[in-house]
């Protein structure tokens, strides 16, 4: 599936997403695991690099507690109507997370700008929803009023 990182199409991505609970962990590499399995697998990770994949029903505080050990947090958007991921990203950035926040699941063009404002910097886009125009989404609205992850000050506190 096409992956956008910092608004550019990324060619090589080391992360493998394992959502099938039956599928064994690989011996090496970088693996994105659903939060519960991620928590359980950490002790036996060895040389594996692990990252949590959270969905809207998960407790984001579990991730916050170990944020300094993470380089990536995946946020699963189960349906485009589920807006909890926007708040998750805001909370992660507010806590000082500098790693990658990647959106997976029902991710498509018309939400990319808002997701970016909230702190997402990577988008795993389903192939059928990808087009060459997709990056247009980032420039459609050039102004905003709110403080968010990309601009800590609301418009009335900017210089």
């Amino acid at each position: 599936m096409p992956l956008l990182i910092n608004q550019q199409l990324a060619e090589n991505d080391k992360w493998q997403t394992l959502t099938d609970a039956e599928q064994p962990l690989p011996a090496a590499g970088a693996v994105l695991l659903p939060l519960e399995r991620f928590t359980a697998a950490q002790a036996e990770a060895g040389s594996l690099e692990l990252a949590p994949l959270v969905n809207g029903d998960d407790d984001i505080n579990v991730v916050l507690e170990q944020l300094d050990q993470l380089t990536l947090v995946g946020i699963e958007i189960s349906a485009f109507t589920d807006g909890r991921g926007f708040s998750f990203a805001r909370i992660l950035r507010r806590a000082g997370f500098k790693g990658q926040i990647r959106a997976l699941g029902d991710v498509s063009q018309d939400r990319l700008a808002f997701l970016t404002r909230c702190g997402f910097d990577a988008f795993d886009i389903p192939a059928e929803r990808y087009s060459n125009e997709i990056a247009n989404a980032f420039g459609e609205i050039s102004v905003n009023y709110q403080a968010s992850s990309d601009e800590p000050r609301p418009i009335y506190r900017r210089d």
């Binding site: 926007f86 805001r90 808002f114 404002r117 909230c118 009023y145 709110q146 968010s148 609301p154």
Partner: peptide
Amino acid sequence: QWSTLHPEFAY
């Protein structure tokens, strides 16, 4: 102004 195109609260 705050609520218009608020990036976090559209869904």
